[in-house]
Write a protein that binds this DNA or RNA. Sequence first.
DNA 1: TTGTTCCAGCTTTTT
DNA 2: GCTGGAACAA
Length: 721
Amino acid sequence: MDVTSIIDSLNDAQRQAVTAPSQAMLILAGAGSGKTRVLVHRIAWQIQVGASHAHSIMAVTFTNKAAKEMRARIENLLNIPTQNLWIGTFHGIAHRLLRRHAAQAKLPETFQVMDSGDQLRVIKRLLNSLNLDDSKWPPREVQWFINAQKDEGIRARHMLETNDLHQRQMLLVYKAYEELCSRSGLVDFAELLLRGHELLRDNPDLLEFYQARFRHIHVDEFQDTNTIQYAWLRLLTDGKDNLFVVGDDDQSIYGWRGAKIENIYNFQKHYPNHQVIKLEQNYRSTGTILKAANKIIANNAGRMGKELWTDSGEGEPCALYAAFNEQDEAYFVVERIRAWVNEGGLRSDAAILYRSNAQSRQFEEKLMATATPYRVYGGLRFFDRAEIKNALAYLRLMSNRDDDASFERVINTPTRGIGAKTIDDIRAIARDQSLSLWAAAIVLINQRTLSARATNALIGFLELIKALSVQAVDLELYEKVKRVVENSGLMELYQKEKMDKGEEKVENLEELVNAARLFNFDQENEEGMSELDLFLTHAALESGDNQGDDFEDCVQLMTIHSAKGLEFKLVFLVGMEEGLFPSQQSVDDIARLEEERRLCYVGMTRAMKQLYLTYAESRRLYGRESYPRPSRFLREIPAELIQEVRLRATVSRPATSIQPKNPPSISTGSYQLGQRVHHDKFGEGVVLQIEGSGAQERVQINFKQVGVKWLMLAYAKLDVL
DNA sequence: TTGTTCCAGCTTTTT
DNA sequence: GCTGGAACAA
């Protein structure tokens, strides 16, 4: 194969990045500048031209989706199988190393991965057993604390003794948590990374082996790496300038969960022989959108510096719509989408992006009212559902009886007469004798202190797990899952549940069996794990495609965070208000405010053809009417790039001097909001909302006698009072 | 054990 | 003002 196919389609900067000699490389890739493309072509280049074996290449991403996409694109480009290529998430690769070298990592062979939900439950229970008050020690806060320490590479034993009471208590909990996890063979997400790091750090022979094996290491979204991830990368590339990272400091929006933009700056110190290449040509958006985005991000200090450009024309100005309230905002957006669709646009090319999930509701309502298909991203994922987690907990117990989190989860689910008292007794024994709950349960039975009924119930549970394990030996994976779902009583439990939710849960359990049937054992198998363990790991590490393919053409609704990496022809950035975006919690802190600004930049650069920005002059928030000021970010966009959309004849308000109106009153063609009117049949009322224009114009009126009604102006006889 | 009531909290999220 | 979780009563 000749090289031209690898480099022909690239621009100069991209080609420079792809063909650079093997050395530390920092690719600053702006939004829409072909970052994945560079990564994929770079890897292809090394295999084709650098004569590297796929075997000696590693590529790390943050999401499974990105990993899958990269692998597919490399296969496509080179037309070779890539199973020797290590492409995966930080967590996935760390997990693989821990499985391979469980003993050296001081983990039991059967260790299980715990997702954040599992972790929270474990912590809750731990706080309980330590007699700590939930309200004074919120489990979420404790979880956050522990993960933050691990993300920084700090173990409980590294923490200094302090006199700060709060800190001391946290430390105590952290210690107890570590003990519990190691006793149960449980590993949380942060632990995967931390232990992965320690594994290499403390085993020089292993480190040397992997350093020699991986001649090229690539990292996607480098600005999102946290301290321990970067430390791990440095270990692997120590003394060998073979780290190729792609990132964008302007798109760092995960600082709040430990990501360190500083890693980009430190990279330059730690790899003095590095080369920096900026990708600034954008292939996604119009010139106007890019100019506006550039202007906004320019307000951040301490950037690496980057300016996006395009040679594909200016396009339409960004549209700004000042809505009367959040209802009006939603109505406006939905109407525009309908117009887009009427003109032949695809619904799936239109996205509504918001700062917080709660904002989706008003849009959903309006979309539903107009029968416009839509899809909300985020929310519960398949493997996060309670019924699925319950079934998985049985399977995990079969694989590892010391898994306390799973034991606790299903010991009385479905109810089998094991009450709180019995469980407390088990916990007490486990605590006093440092046993797993399973072992403690056996001790408790042998003590013969329980009532006959409780004893029988408990024995019944233990026997159930044992029986399932025995029966499972010769079964196919999906048959194991099926047997568990049926014999555990879970299926029966949900079948009896009231129609509404139960049916869905039954379907989900059936879907789980199906997922097990389709599970590709060969593809995932490498470390000699059992099929069941592989499946369980898969469930923990890939909680299911939330954004699975939709068969219908749908309007896309999601937070700006989850829109990162995506693009849409038509984008609505809604709720552009102080307190919402930037969020209230961020306005007092420069660093956090700058992250909000980057988020705004990310949101804007999702748009290919047309960007709408909307805000509401009045918004119901927490049950209270608020009159927020328009977002400061709006003022950071030059007025000439913005065109204000007005459905009603109002006085022009330049974007640069947006005045909030308190309370707002906006005139319309014929009526005013707040206008008192009289209707022959309904009596007296006040105009609440006005929608549409011409023959379609409707007004919403709150009548004193009959309440709120929508009336078509063309038909309703209204007298202005 | 289930249904009810009360109360806090209320950005963003992947692994 | 709504939601989810926990405490409580029956």
